[in-house]
């Protein structure tokens, strides 16, 4: 996986190995979200190119190589949880486009995110955390090679957030998908990521890539560990220098 150079964010060149979990940190306005939007073909690069598995972003989008999880769950309120997960399978079906389907059925994906038994619930009947889990199941339904997450747990309370962090690590392990995860929270970035990409503002550039040498599987208790706190201190210092 390769990002070319793009100028909306200046001179960003990164190679991301398949199956890696990257978290992206940086001050507000440093282009964290823009970066995901470039990768997902939502905005075109001013110059340069972005490649995903040797394809242009448009080709990757058409082949459903990646999926996006927004800060807001963006579920369709008139569809049940299951119907929301099935939405990507319906789009394009009538136009004869072959839609990649994963190993897991929508039912199994809802089970994977811990929502077995709530298949028929409408979004307004679910809590914020549950809605976000439906959104994750929906993102996984075409078995994407790359999962882009833009502060997906930013609006949730801390307990729910911890729970979903653990669940996301399980899902990552189970599916082997590559994850790019934008967050505001230093502990979240360290807890989830193998590598933390620190961006700098005005213009957005790479400040540093920090490898997180903490072992997997990770538990909540890891957050009390001295190693973890050392990473926190280091990243906080980097963020202050931005």
């Amino acid at each position: 996986m390769k990002f070319g150079d793009f100028t909306a964010l200046r001179d960003i060149s990164l190679d991301i190995e398949a199956g890696e979990f990257w978290t992206i940190l940086g001050p507000s306005g440093c282009g964290k979200s823009t970066m995901l939007r470039l990768v997902s073909d939502l905005v075109p690069p001013a110059s340069g190119s972005v490649e995903i598995l040797g394809k242009t972003t448009e080709a990757a989008r058409l082949a459903r190589e990646f999926a996006f999880v927004f800060q807001d769950a963006t579920l369709l309120p008139w569809r049940s949880a299951l119907k929301n997960v099935e939405l990507p399978l319906e789009i394009g079906r009538k136009r004869g486009i072959t839609i990649p389907t994963g190993d897991r059925t929508p039912h199994e994906l809802l089970e994977l995110v811990g929502l077995k038994g709530r298949e028929n619930a409408l979004p307004h009947e679910l809590s914020g955390g549950m809605r976000q889990r439906v959104a994750i199941a929906r993102a996984l339904v075409c078995q994407p090679k790359l999962l882009l997450m833009d502060e997906p747990f930013g609006a949730l309370d801390e307990m729910t957030r911890d729970h979903l962090n653990l669940q996301l690590l399980d899902i990552w392990k189970e599916t082997g998908t590559t994850i790019l995860f934008v967050t505001h929270s230093i502990p979240e970035a360290i807890f989830l990521g193998q590598k933390v990409l620190m961006l700098k503002a005005n213009p957005g550039r790479i400040k540093e890539v920090v490898e997180i040498g903490l072992p997997f599987p990770r538990e909540i208790a890891l957050r009390e560990a001295p190693d973890f706190n050392a990473y926190c201190g280091r990243l906080r210092k980097l963020l202050e220098d931005c």
């Binding site: 073909d41 459903r64 990646f66 807001d72 008139w78 939405l87 394009g92 136009r95």
Partner: peptide
């Protein structure tokens, strides 16, 4: 919402799919 339209774009939805699956039910 703009995010729902972004979701539709990521799924490469056609104009008529956006209309029938998203806009029309939203308007009810």
């Amino acid at each position: 919402s703009p995010q729902t339209l972004e979701l539709a774009r990521i799924l490469s939805a056609s104009k008529s799919e956006v209309f029938w699956k998203i806009r029309l039910p939203s308007s009810l």
